[in-house]
Design a protein around this nucleic acid. Structure first.
Lengths: 336, 336
DNA sequence: TTGAAAGCGCTACCAC
DNA sequence: GTGGTAGCGCTTTCAA
């Protein structure tokens, strides 16, 4: 049988309610008794009964995260990062890999205190609920839950601006231009707007629709791009995986990054460092993103009536410079 | 406030213990009352309080799965599959993305009934515990917990045998020959043994160590393989991701699958169907594997004293034929 | 500063 | 068949 507070009480020769208080670090208990109780609890290897705590407090201290169906490096890294942040609080995190409605049901059953949901499309509008819920995705007037938005447009501005400062003018975009996914739409529109705002030329043939987000889509994207007679001097890539393919294909085309062509990738993840050519990337730092998401859901749980609890958050992306960009000088011309 | 059995009891005009029995489908309740109670419960949207159930029954009906840190399509598909199986029982599944010791701790806190652990290396030997635990990995005398083993050697035999029956003699192996990972070792040794048993010639230069399990490792593996003067007529690939790279590179070498070269891949996953060339693959069917793992852990939980509960299971892999293999006839010679 | 006791929602046992 | 009730382990008043 497991150790309970009653066992501890018996040994410490106090009532079990005192033990409970001591264990919860209540100021109502004399420091000496508190210490005595703590010691005994440790010796006995006491572990509080979670179910009992939940039953009486009506709170679980669990945050549920609905795991996106798609497996992509960036997301799994983000989940790990969020988990780290949550561990630092008094909450725990559990994952559900079921589809949204099922996940919601499971989490209700578990009586989680709050839910984090990675929104990957407009398809699954989540109805208003009694449970605090935070969406990681794109802001949208239809969402009834607060959204943490990575601000794709701003990221793209940073990317374009960085390249412009290096002297680049023809900057291509390779990404999934599929209009179903608001994140992809935002990235591309952000790129277009930045190019426009910064008065850079827009060329139809420099906008490559990969039709997907995997490495092979990036690979094929470069092929398509390189069919032009003249080449851009820089590429902005829509995602980590796409960049993998871009890098691979560019190399096969006997071109060097960054000497022949500069690349900035979306998805500011540490993995960029380990690529064949460490890529300069834009996006919200994963750690910052994880922190914001975590704070948001906890605020939502603990201060549901605070006005800011329901506000959306538009994050501040940053650019992380690595080895994939080079100033454009007149002597460096792309080869064919 | 949530609906409790007391609320239902009041409306149904019975005692709340009767309600409890009815809700648990006890034969001790008259069908008519049972039905009445059920109806009321539904109308009120009654949801049993999980914590209370757990508290009194001392069981959680939760199975914890320690999610491997590495993100690979096959594993995430397997997790999804296991989840499906578990959903069909009265258990639920939660995932932990923390490192082993932390995960174990979390799961103990949750008082899960059992744990599934994906073993990816020999590094983390799990100590004997009070909790039922099942390992998915390679059998090994050091494991103190039952293991579900996909039987890599048998898979490789199926692959080699299939190719032999099609007339192939020179069959290359591209995979991670890293000796740290018992699964990779088993695959390669299985291949060697099968080649030997089936009296096929073994060529050093046909054994490609990719040094990793990602697509690019397969890609580079083919490059290395094709440096030989003469080429094999078939390739066995060590994993799904490796196959992606193999396919890509083979195509770039202007060779056609299966006309110029046949491929059999390890990892019998549905995704093989959707590849550029649907790959014939060997391995345990994911659904079967998921079922076995699920059954094993549940058996372990519910009949801990049954002699079979602690037995390892060596699974039966199968070959799934798709479009990547062709009989070898004398006129078809690999090009250079 | 400590203890007694109520009660969270439920299951299981025993009595009727 | 049904109802009464103890008790799972804990937190939280309230009283001492």
């Amino acid at each position: 049988m497991n150790v309970t507070i009653k066992d501890i009480a018996k040994i410490a020769n106090v009532s079990y309610s005192t033990v409970s208080k001591a264990l919860n670090n209540s100021p109502l208990v004399k420091p000496t008794t508190k210490e005595k109780i703590m010691t005994i609890a440790n010796e006995l290897g006491y572990q509080p009964n979670f179910a009992a705590q939940r039953l009486v407090s009506n709170r679980t201290n669990i945050i549920g995260l609905i795991w996106p169906t798609i497996d992509r490096v960036v997301l799994s890294t983000l989940v790990t990062e969020i988990n780290k942040k949550i561990e630092k609080t008094h909450y725990s995190m559990i994952l559900s890999v079921e589809p949204i409605p099922k996940s919601l049901e499971t989490f209700k059953r578990f009586q989680v205190d709050g839910i984090i949901y990675f929104d990957e499309s407009f398809e699954n509008e989540i109805p208003e609920m009694d449970l605090p819920l935070v969406i990681y995705g794109v802001q949208d007037p239809y969402h009834v839950h607060p959204v943490v938005d990575p601000n794709h447009a701003k990221s793209m501005f940073l990317a374009v601006n960085h390249l412009k400062n290096l002297g680049h003018k023809r900057i291509a975009y390779i990404g999934d231009l599929n209009t179903e996914d608001p994140r992809q739409v935002n990235k591309f529109n952000g790129y277009l707007k930045a190019m426009n705002d910064l008065q850079l030329p827009l060329n139809e043939q420099d906008h490559i629709d990969t039709g997907g987000l995997n490495w092979n889509h990036g690979y094929d994207g470069v092929k398509k791009l390189f069919q032009s007679n003249t080449l851009p001097t820089a590429i902005i890539s829509g995602s980590y995986d796409i960049s993998e393919g871009i890098l691979r294909r560019v190399k096969e085309e006997q071109m060097d990054v960054p000497n022949d062509i500069s690349i900035v990738s979306y998805d500011n993840v540490p993995q960029m460092e380990k690529m064949e050519v460490p890529l300069t990337s834009v996006g919200v730092s994963l750690s910052y993103l994880a922190k914001k998401i975590t704070n948001k859901i906890i605020e939502h749980i603990e201060k549901p009536d605070s006005p800011s609890a329901k506000e959306n958050i538009l994050l501040q992306p940053i650019i992380t410079e690595r080895d994939s960009c080079k100033p454009l000088n007149e002597t460096t011309k792309p080869t064919f």
